[in-house]
Design a protein around this nucleic acid. Structure first.
Lengths: 352, 352
DNA sequence: TTGAAAGCGCTACCAC
DNA sequence: GTGGTAGCGCTTTCAA
């Protein structure tokens, strides 16, 4: 681990020359071959490896990009789906010649981004991954950082670039699919509308309904907690309505299984008695006996897209912050079909 | 993103004082409160965030540790088991105040460690994770790096610290278990003995046998390829021997399922007709209908142990390179039992 | 062709 | 209490 200086001294030459040669810089051409030879040789002999920190400081570029998570690693990596985003970024970023810096939330502040002060100067750009809360106070602080930052998600006060799944479109597609089949009473199971993705999916749902001139009843929209339990409770409520929906759209995949159980528990058949559709296809724990119609997207692609944006920002190909949406598509399974009886529709109309 | 200098100028004070205050260094006490106040304030106002690179260069310490993989991320992160090692390291390292640098093999050179030149100076220490080949040429180059390196695995020419599963003990325990049950003809299914872990497990097997005064017949040791297919073929060979073993020890978990299939395919019952034991409990794809007796260890713990060693090296608590073994334990399932008939043993003895 | 020197931003030692 | 200054190891501009 010799330094440039040591090499230079040994060869009896100045640091600048040694630097030029070892970096193959353009001015390198104007160094005599003999010297070039000698420098290269002794560098190898002495096992010279440039000190990347010093180099970065001098050049003003680190060739590192940072990834910050709003969840601790064991949560992120435990899940087969979400770890794909790391894999994607890692692959792509390495290919572009950058190294990766990892930073994640710690301790109590689950779901909030950690302070990234210790990354300042260590990275050329930043990728922020994970659910974003509106009340996250770290995110707004990023606005006056002068490195490019790509947020995978959304925050009202964030001014940098944003990449996310096209949630609104997904919500729209799912709802439209049900409408096209003839459903008019479509229940929505979602989590709190505070996280941007939940709200966006909800907006898509609304748009599709309005497009058909339908005004969703308040009780059709069930806000519940994340997880099986949440899905179960919400579906139960929907089913116990005076006029239960003929179709249920679960806009947050992790609630789907619970919701399905509730439906089965009520002795209903999918899709004969009720149609069922869910956002987020990546749930490994979906039941195998029925192919659920889903809105599909992949973490891997999301990672790829975010990285692409960041890399462009870094290259200067993109000047201003941008917003990108990862396309989603509807994958039709056997969980959606025509509504059971036309009666259902009429009843609703009569009631309106 | 103001610099120290700018802060200092604005306050009308020298950089050194500003530095002291902002770092809360011990000499900080000897700065007048009024100045302290002012400096702190304007630093906040100007949104000062210390440039970590410069700081690191000056202090000679980066507070980064690097993780290098001999496999590309999509292979490592795809697997629920092996991604746990990243989670463990990440958790622990963050807790110790370090950030993580990621680097992995790329392109064709699957299974070989990538050059880590671009990490030089960027990290205080290195964790190398992934199967190590004896002919890996990068690993020996690490010997003259002056940062501590922990290799999770083993390489004949590597002089740094080494952490690995206690493979030898595992091989020993598994074999001893079978011996204790009364088995005397114990087949071993392994992959090439070149990777250290395979060889070590084999050695454990030998030790247990020798301890009982048994000389393993050559045909009892089947060397095969990794995977189901490999396990299947090897088990078939063992079963077709003139004197088939009364127990089979699969020393590489990924071959276990294939081996089991061969056994079932031969119409044999486990454990009635033949006992079965495997190394590596983490296989998610083990059959559910039978609890296989296994040698257990966890990637997460391996990650924890490696990190602990590296952290100690970094703290100076450990001076010279060390070797640590992660304990394994035998988890008894229902796949091992007494040999079918005492006859079997007698026959063997007669033949010897 | 080669080298001196400034500077990247910060730390730490030493003098005032 | 406060400030000057010498680096950390490297790049780059400008002279020689």
């Amino acid at each position: 681990m010799a330094t440039l200086k040591e090499i230079a001294q040994k060869v009896g030459v100045s640091v600048s020359v040694a630097s030029k040669v070892l970096n193959n810089s353009r001015t390198n051409a104007r160094v005599s071959d003999s010297l070039k030879q000698k420098i290269l040789e002794t560098a190898k002999e002495m096992g010279y490896r440039p000190h990347q920190l010093a180099r970065a400081l001098a050049k003003g570029k680190t060739y590192n990009i940072g990834i910050v998570f709003s969840y601790p690693p064991h949560i992120f990596l435990r899940d087969l789906s979400s770890s794909q985003i790391v894999a994607a970024v890692w692959d792509k970023v390495n290919k572009a010649g950058y190294s990766i810096f990892l930073k994640s939330a710690r301790g109590k502040k689950l779901g909030y981004f950690p302070p990234i002060d210790d990354l300042i100067g260590k990275v050329d750009g930043l990728l922020a991954i994970g659910p974003v809360r509106e009340d996250d106070e770290e995110v707004p602080r990023w606005n006056d950082l002068k490195i490019p930052i790509v947020l995978v998600g959304n925050h009202p006060k964030f001014k940098g670039s944003v990449v996310d799944v096209d949630n609104e479109l997904g919500g729209y597609l799912a709802t439209k699919h049900l409408l096209a089949l003839g459903h008019r009473r479509i229940g929505l199971i979602t989590i709190s509308l505070e996280p941007s993705y939940a709200r966006e999916r909800y907006n898509g749902y609304l748009r599709a309904l309005k497009e058909r001139g339908l005004q969703p009843k308040e009780e059709w929209v069930q806000i519940t907690e994340i997880g099986d339990e949440g899905g179960y409770k919400a579906a139960k409520k929907l089913l116990s309505l005076q006029e239960p929906p003929s179709a249920i759209f679960v806009s947050v995949g992790v609630c789907a299984r619970g919701a399905l159980e509730a439906i089965k528990g009520a002795g209903l058949d999918v899709p004969k008695d009720i149609s069922f559709i869910a956002f987020d296809r990546f749930m490994e724990n979906f039941p195998k006996d029925i192919q659920i119609t889903t809105v599909d997207w992949s973490f891997y692609k999301l990672g790829l897209l975010s990285t692409a944006v960041l890399l462009r920002l870094l290259n200067g190909e993109l000047k201003a912050p941008v917003e990108r949406r990862l396309p989603v598509r509807l994958i039709q399974g056997s969980s959606t079909g025509k509504p059971k009886e036309k009666m259902a529709r009429k009843e609703v109309k009569n009631n309106e």
